[in-house]
């Protein structure tokens, strides 16, 4: 049996969990899902799992990484799964790291393929996906996280799962790190991670003021504006707008990269984009080679011309 941690935030399923479930359905063996907290009860039917384990405890009313790992550890103990998987999200990686420490077992992070066997062989992303590693997992229970956006999530097959509630073995120490409050995103602002169009700017934008034309283009297209690490480090954009390995991962229909050179760390953040349009004065910039479309020239002239053409309907 294989166990998938299904990530949610106060009862809202995370998109990456669908990818982890899709990955898990392709493995040999039965699929059991795990949900942590009473708020997740409404999610049990949509997972395509034959059995759903629901961790119930009044203290599990918000995300607490060590407590989530304790819940998984309780199931590993009682159910002896072969593989335990989580999404390759911040939370998934964090919970699996805690679980690995508890079980004294290795975690194979950012896995893109699992060949199985004994020893258990996986292929996983390293260095933000710029290299792949084939590795053997030597442990009685294999702990994996599924690389984000490495496979397309498939809809879950209809299932009427058996729901089994359980009380995880929690200590007070497991609840010390817990979300105590949130600063919610600005209402009405389109989030980078959800936008259908992202307009990104790099050093070539020239200044914080240079982003005005990018804002305008994003406004016309109903998209969001982001930036490379250079522009957030220079203070031209807030850090929350950074696209890349250590910033936001985007997956829009179209990413319009303006004056972005295309460093590997940036490309990791935008590889989920279906199409890339590069606007750059340097035809040899790495971003141009990785783009689907390119316009060569000064973005300060090109972007306003595109905005004008869109507005005039031409």
């Amino acid at each position: 049996m294989n166990l998938v941690l299904v990530e949610h935030d106060r009862g809202v399923l995370s998109d990456l969990s669908h990818e982890a479930l899709t990955f898990a359905r392709r493995l040999d063996g039965e699929l059991d899902a795990v949900l942590v907290g009473e708020e997740a009860r409404g999610l049990v039917d949509g997972l395509g799992a034959s059995r759903v384990h629901l961790a119930v405890d009044p203290r599990l009313d918000d995300y607490a990484p060590a407590a989530w790992a304790a819940a998984l550890a309780t199931l590993v103990e009682s159910r002896s799964p072969e593989v335990v998987l989580a999404a390759g999200s911040d939370r998934g990686q964090e919970v699996m790291a805690h679980l690995g420490a508890r079980l004294d077992a290795p975690v194979a992070a950012n896995v893109v393929a699992a060949a199985g066997g004994d020893p258990f062989v996986v292929t996983r992303q390293r260095w933000g996906g710029s290299l792949l590693e084939e590795a053997r997992v030597h442990a009685p229970v294999k702990l994996l996280t599924v690389a984000a956006h490495a496979l397309a999530a498939e809809p879950a097959p209809a299932s009427s799962p058996v729901v089994e509630e359980f009380a995880p073995a929690l200590s007070d120490a497991d609840l010390v790190v817990k979300v105590v409050r949130r600063d919610e995103p600005q209402a009405g602002k389109i989030q980078l991670g959800d936008a259908r169009v992202v307009v990104g700017g790099g050093r070539g934008v020239g200044s914080a003021e240079g982003f005005a034309v990018l804002e305008e283009l994003a406004g016309v297209l109903g998209g969001a504006v982001g930036g490379s690490r250079v522009v957030t480090n220079l203070g031209w954009r807030p850090h929350a707008d950074q696209i890349g390995q250590t910033g936001a991962r985007i997956a829009p229909e179209l990413y319009i990269a303006c004056g972005v050179s295309g460093a590997i760390q940036h490309m990791v953040g935008c590889k989920g984009a279906k199409r890339i349009l590069a606007i750059n004065k340097d035809p040899n910039a790495p971003i141009v080679a990785r783009a689907d479309y390119a316009v060569i020239g000064d973005l300060g002239e090109i972007v306003p011309a595109i905005v004008a053409a869109l507005r005039s309907g031409g």
Binding site: A108, L131, L132, E134, A135, R136, V137, H138, D292, V295
Partner: peptide
């Protein structure tokens, strides 16, 4: 316990770029 067997360079999937002008 997680043993590296080998490293591989991923295949580039991108089509060739179309320069629009």
């Amino acid at each position: 316990a997680l043993e590296k067997v080998r490293l591989l360079v991923p295949q580039e999937e991108r089509a060739t770029v179309q320069v629009l002008g």
